[in-house]
Amino acid sequence: MRNIFLLMLLFSLIVACRSKSSIVSDELKNMATSENDFIITFGSCNKHDMENVFWDDILAQNPDAFIWGGDIVYADTDNTSKIQEHYDLQDTVPNYATLKEKVFITGTWDDHDYGLNDGGIEFSAKKGSQQAFLNFMDVPQNDERRQQEGVYSSQMISKPNGLIKIINLDTRYFRTGLIDDKKEGRRYKPNDYGDGTILGKAQWQWLENELKTSNADFNLIVSSIQFLSNEHGFEKWANHPAEVDKMEKLITSSGAKGVLILSGDRHISEFSRKDLKGLSYPLIDFTSSGLTHSYSSYSGEPNQYRVGEVTAIPSFGLIEFDIEKKTATLKIIGDHGVVLQELKQAY
């Protein structure tokens, strides 16, 4: 009996050791997988009182970050207490609360969470609205963003094999006026070249420093409004054409690696791509807009830089980065994780 007991004990120890080795191997394998790639998710245009079916889909991607591209809530008021109430309600959405517990969240605002539809520098409640936004983003009271004008910020996501930098622009606080367009189906037309600004002097200086000093493998510039699509009649960077030239020159001259632009606002999703003189890779503007609602009456609009088709149903954006291969795979994703469109770019 003693010999049988010893044999059984030896057998159990061997099984236990094999089981432990298997678990460790799986853990190491999972760690290696997570270190090989960065996964960034983002989206915009979210009504807190409408169902957002994507929070579980986003969490299922196991992303390194989720980026708000603006219109987090639809407040549209100069009552900053009401704006804060809308943000507080968004925080109570169960699946979003779960995402917030498990995933790093950053981003910027757009007009509806700013408080004024198509609003800019003229909005009288912008200082209070800024504090409500920062509260929602859990920014500490002693953070410098509490004192600066505008919600622009940057964060670095680090892994052993690389760095991703997220640069959140504020295209509202300093943006000067737009010119009404009288043509049917168009809201605005471009300002005269050199008139007005989108970012303002201080933010432009900050952005220049962020790009020129960046050692990241990829740099994501988050703009609530579209940068490359310049033919439609709504809000866009092209309404301030000198600002577009300034941004393109800065991206080209900064030496920053792998610059991509992420945008929202339009209630559609699309890829835009443009070759810039002096830049070794094409500049991509990935628009992901319509987390809870979309441009359902969309019937087409010109965009000379568009790659693929416009997605006019709710969706979110996802980017997979391969640091070693220096590639980014951009995906427009619908409910249940269905990939609606995909674009791969080498850098």
Rank of each mutant, 00 (worst) to 15 (best):
F5T: 13
L9G: 09
F11R: 12
L13N: 11
I14R: 11
A16I: 12
C17F: 13
C17G: 14
K20S: 10
I23E: 15
K29V: 04
M31S: 11
E35D: 15
N36R: 15
N36H: 11
I40Y: 06
D49Q: 09
E51H: 10
V53S: 14
W55N: 04
W55K: 04
W55P: 06
D56E: 15
D57I: 04
A60R: 12
P63R: 01
F66D: 01
I67Y: 06
I67G: 01
D71Q: 03
A75M: 09
T77A: 01
D78M: 06
K82M: 11
K82N: 10
E85N: 14
L89W: 12
V93D: 10
V93Q: 13
K100P: 03
E101R: 15
I105W: 09
T106I: 08
T106H: 05
T108Q: 03
T108R: 01
W109L: 14
D118H: 03
D118N: 15
G119K: 03
F136R: 00
M137F: 13
D138G: 01
N142I: 08
E144A: 13
S154T: 08
Q155M: 07
M156D: 15
S158I: 13
G162Q: 08
L163P: 00
K165T: 00
K165D: 01
I166F: 02
I166K: 03
I167W: 05
N168Y: 02
L169V: 07
Y173M: 09
G177S: 12
K183Y: 10
R186T: 13
Y188F: 15
Y188N: 04
N191H: 03
Y193R: 13
G196L: 09
G196R: 06
T197I: 06
A202G: 02
N209P: 01
L211C: 08
L211I: 11
T213F: 09
A216G: 11
F218S: 03
F218K: 07
F218D: 00
F218N: 02
N219P: 08
I221R: 02
V222D: 01
I225C: 02
Q226T: 14
S229P: 00
H232M: 11
G233A: 10
N239I: 07
H240T: 07
P241C: 04
E243S: 08
K246E: 11
I251G: 05
T252H: 06
S253W: 01
S254T: 07
G258E: 09
G264F: 09
R266C: 07
H267A: 09
I268N: 10
E270C: 11
F271C: 09
K274A: 13
D275C: 05
Y281N: 12
D285N: 13
D285A: 09
L291C: 03
H293K: 08
Y295C: 02
Y295F: 14
S297T: 15
Y298H: 13
S299P: 03
G300H: 08
E301C: 05
N303E: 09
Q304Y: 04
Y305Q: 08
Y305W: 14
V307L: 10
T311D: 09
A312N: 15
F316N: 02
E320R: 12
I323G: 01
I323R: 00
E324R: 12
K325P: 00
A328R: 05
T329H: 00
K331Y: 04
I333P: 03
H336K: 14
G337C: 07
K344C: 04
Y347H: 08
